[in-house]
Amino acid sequence: MSVDALSEKAEFQRRARFIWLRGLAEKTGVFLGAIALWEILARTVIDPFWMSMPSLVAERLWKLAVSGDLLYHTQATVLQAMLGLVSGLLVGVAAGVVLTRYSRAAEAMNPIIMGLYSLPRIALAPLFIIWFGIGLLSKVMMVFSFVVFIFLLNTMQGLRAVDQDLVDLMRSMRAKPGFIAWRVQFPSILPWLVNAARISVGLALIGSVLGELLGANRGLGWYVEYSGGRLDTTGVFAGLVALMVVAIALNTVVDLVERWLVPTRP
């Protein structure tokens, strides 16, 4: 590489870093501005009873963190979400593979699948409580019911979108079905699965919190509900902030997984 190219590359990297830093500064600025606005409004025009105030919420979060309650509730919500997510992924992908293999069965089951998929999941809550009780299982199943179809449908669409010429090319060299599955089909559907995971992370939190609202004694959703019942808006907001942080953290995990698994994406 010539000196010119080197310095050009350094210049390019410097510029990229500058743009990144500027973006970060802008995001932080907007965020802090919003918090400040909230605090000012709460201290001047709006009674903190209705929407609490950032300083109170921060104080509450600190107390919850110190007492260990924050971890206790967060753990429950995240655990339910993760168990549901993983079981939904396993079952959804497996069912997607099987239904793609047996396309007539898939055709026949399509109305049922679409029907279940469009059903408002909250309407299933009473059944889930009868079937699975009010313990961990009913929450996990609630999450599962939200995410399984996302994985199922994405797997089926991803498999349909596999480049048939790539499969044929491998077949022409007498590749075994396992080789084709591993070298062609699996990498083809990876972006679809990551996409499904991205959608599912949000849904899993919804399912997990929904499960807690229906009957629980721990979890961030439960804490929000409990605080709301006592007209403790600071508690409600503390719970919401914690949920938001969890959501952001989970999304970041998906981002990292994506960057690791699907490096070709621009």
Binding site: D163, D165, L166, S172, M173
Partner: peptide, 15 residues
């Protein structure tokens, strides 16, 4: 597909 036959498609079919 018989053994020992290699096929180069009209379209480049790379992974």
């Amino acid at each position: 597909p018989p053994p020992d036959v290699g096929f180069m498609f009209q379209r480049d079919t790379l992974l």
